[in-house]
Design a protein around this nucleic acid. Structure first.
Lengths: 163, 163
DNA sequence: AATTAATATTAGGCTTACCTAAATATTGAG
DNA sequence: CTCAATATTTAGGTAAGCCTAATATTAATT
């Protein structure tokens, strides 16, 4: 029985405030950087309009967010119109993408009906150490296909899939 | 009719807007209701000040949030100062608490260093079907202690706990 | 070079969801 | 009836992130 008597409960907001991000990245900034990273993997640079399309927001929003990412040292401008990753941006971007993939992979394993959406909502909240542990869980199933198979069958017997 | 390529990316906010909760509950409202439910388990009713203490917010905040929960039909006033759960409140509160426990349990399984905090941040984002599936994962380990043991050993071999 | 089209930025405002302090109101105990 | 505890209202503030509309910049075409 978990007793609420401990005074350590807070509302979501309370926890969010408690957790100050050393990276300076807010959830939305992480999304922008993650997307910039994806796009730079393909073309080595990206642009405001491209990001705008891919994230379904207006260019003006991108403009503002990109300039914040520049200030934070994750992005830089090339000729004033192409956006590049800095070294820090590459490192962090790679982490964000990996984190994304791990979590999406996890939701897929669990059998979520919309892994992408749930990932987008959740990824920003997890500490890197937890992400690592979730990855470990995935690795465990990967390295033990027999157990993986057993779990999948258990899962599908237990949960009735909708849709 | 082919499904719209729903692989469209959005920012967190985009997803949050997309997902309008039929229950009318925001993350913070869920926290208030969950706590009210916990407290009512112990004493059958609760109060503004009690909630205020337990959630580390000011009474005036509680007052406002409670009145929202009353409007939504989850709580009701008794003698103008004791707060009770409605039937709907009991059902939903029970769900919220169970969800909380499942997720916290999951983080504990994974080996998170702060399961409570991470749970509070994440719980509001997950669909009930995914919660169910995570529960299934837990059940799988519960019902297969051998596998559970194997995983724990694998986990502890793989992840070096920080101090 | 001048015009137009494409791009990007700025300015300013809006919304949501909280939270707070301070003033006021209510309740209930003695 | 009065004091203390409790609750509510009022009025205000913050933070993040988005938008529109106006402006500025760059690139492309003639």
């Amino acid at each position: 029985m978990s007793k609420p008597a401990e005074n350590e409960f807070r509302t979501v907001r309370g926890y969010q405030l408690k957790k100050q991000n050393e990276s300076g990245l807010t959830p939305a900034l992480e999304d922008y950087l993650e997307m910039a990273y994806r796009l730079c993997l393909e073309e080595s640079y990206t642009r405001v309009n491209k990001l705008s399309e891919c994230l379904n927001v207006r260019p003006s929003s991108v403009s503002k967010m990109v300039s914040r990412l520049v200030k934070l040292g994750y992005l830089e401008y090339d000729r004033l119109d192409s956006i590049l990753l800095t070294e820090e941006g590459r490192i962090t971007g790679a982490y964000l993408l990996e984190r994304h993939n791990i979590i999406e992979h996890f939701f897929a394993l669990a059998g979520s009906s919309n892994p992408l959406e749930e990932t987008e909502l959740v990824e920003h909240m997890l500490s890197s150490s937890t992400v690592l542990r979730i990855q470990t869980l995935l690795k465990f199933f990967e390295e033990n296909p027999d157990i993986h198979r057993r779990f999948k069958s258990f899962r599908d017997r237990t949960v009735f899939p909708e849709t």
